[in-house]
Nucleic acid binder design. Structure first.
Length: 211
DNA sequence: GACCAGGTCCTTG
DNA sequence: CAAGGACATGGT
């Protein structure tokens, strides 16, 4: 499409179009604990399944990472079964909980510089780039842009052939340094992908029809 | 019944 | 490094 234009120009056009369609909306609900738990559970799974699992956990009295550590493992597995990969996800929840506990709790995390905390999070088994950035951006309100496969698909479709790591840098370059902005923008890409890239076809795609 | 979902880790070439 | 498999349930 606009493949002769620089990536920054293309990305700006997409973002402007998406904002016009979706406006802003609190896209990932919940406090820091709920976001962190959800960030693990949503791996390779629909959000509706995660919502069920979060309710299951709550019914079992598990609402925080601290609760995860104290809970019976079988109890956690039962609650998160509906998100798939429930054995590995249970282990990942426990790993993350222990990490946060070792750091002194969530309030202590907020005092760590975002780049440093991101590196530390990536050391946790089961926490990859997207999960780490989701935790930072939506859970702790720190400016770390989240790239997922939808974003890679949409930008690729628009002629930006960068992989996830490069895309993160590109988005953070183009967007103003604002957590709210990062949160909204990532949400737009996911909503857009769900609305147009899957059910509908590419000829209806704004990305392919930028003016 | 096939195919995909708001990934990540581990093993191979 | 890139590619391929494993992890697993639920919805269309």
């Amino acid at each position: 499409m606009d493949s002769e234009n620089p990536p920054k120009i293309i990305l700006n056009s997409i973002i402007i179009s998406l904002e016009r369609i979706y406006g802003s909306a609190g896209w990932w609900p919940g406090d820091a604990d709920q976001v962190m738990i959800g960030a693990i559970l949503t791996q390779q799974t629909r959000w509706s399944n995660v919502e069920k699992a979060l309710l299951n956990l709550e019914s079992a009295g598990i609402k925080t990472l601290e609760d995860i550590m104290k809970a019976d493992k079988e109890m956690i597995m039962d609650a998160v079964r509906c998100t798939g990969y429930y054995r590995v996800k249970t282990e990942r929840l426990i790993e993350l909980s222990m990490f946060v506990d070792n750091k002194g709790g969530i309030d202590a995390l907020r005092k760590i510089p975002v780049g440093e905390l991101r590196r530390d999070l990536l050391q946790v088994k089961g926490v990859g780039a997207e999960t780490a950035d989701s935790i930072l951006c939506y859970g702790l309100n720190m400016p770390s842009y989240v790239i997922d496969s939808y974003t890679e698909r949409i930008t690729g479709c628009a002629g930006i052939s960068a992989k996830k790591e490069k895309l993160k840098a590109l988005f953070e370059d183009v967007l103003p340094l604002s957590v709210e902005r990062y949160q909204d923008c990532h949400g737009w890409f996911v909503e857009y992908a769900k609305d147009f890239c899957i059910k509908k076809r590419c000829d209806e795609c704004i990305v392919m029809n930028l003016d």
